[in-house]
Amino acid sequence: MNSLYKYILRIADDSLILGQRLSELCGHGPIIEEDIALTNIALDLIGQATSLYEYAAIVGGEGKTADDIAFLRFEREYVNVLLVEQPNGDFGMTIARQWFFDSFRVLFYDAMLESTDQQLAAIAEKSLKETKYHWKHSSEWLVRLGDGTDESHDRVQTAINYLHRYVDELFFMDEVDTALITEGIAVDLASLKVAFDAKTSEVMEMATLSFPTNNWKQVGGRVGKHTEHLGHILSELQYMQRAYPNMEW
């Protein structure tokens, strides 16, 4: 399995799993206006995942289609970060999760524009526009919830405290990245960290929120070691493909 293939899957799985999480909310959003907004974000993410899986199928799919790759791997073969598989929780949790992810993704896609891999650069260009809007949306909500009522402040602060342990994994790198960075294909995630801290701190301050002081970090998703949540996400996601193998839909 080549590095580029694995690298594409990491980006694609993040989009797919977060898109899947957000689509659970379709029809159940806390406000009708927000139902539409979250669904738009879910659609963008599913769209990004589709482009990426299609590319993965070309790069190293061994005859598999994008759908085969998206739907027919086992739990340990999914390589998304733990952050995106966390449950929707209350709206504070949904927004905080989205905001951490968007803050990272904006910087990530921006850096990926420079990738020597033309396909990845093209996907980044399209995705960056979408992600900038996601970030604006999640930031605006984070500020409103943080600086809204006492209750909303407490709720979103609780969400930040809970999710903060999963943020560091967004910057996880291993041998998959190293070789590709040398070739100018992959983004050196370490180089984004300073900008990420600045970008997130600014919004947190406007939202009158603070990061938790403990530095407890959870990693594992990038190498297929997930939280218990992923298995349940996959059992829904894969239901049709597993129950009725090899059919057209």
Partner: peptide, 17 residues
């Protein structure tokens, strides 16, 4: 969440939206 493939998932999301 149980749509059988990526295309159907996107279409259904857009429709319900």
């Amino acid at each position: 969440t149980r749509a059988p493939n990526l295309r159907r998932k996107a279409v259904l999301l857009a429709k319900v939206q």
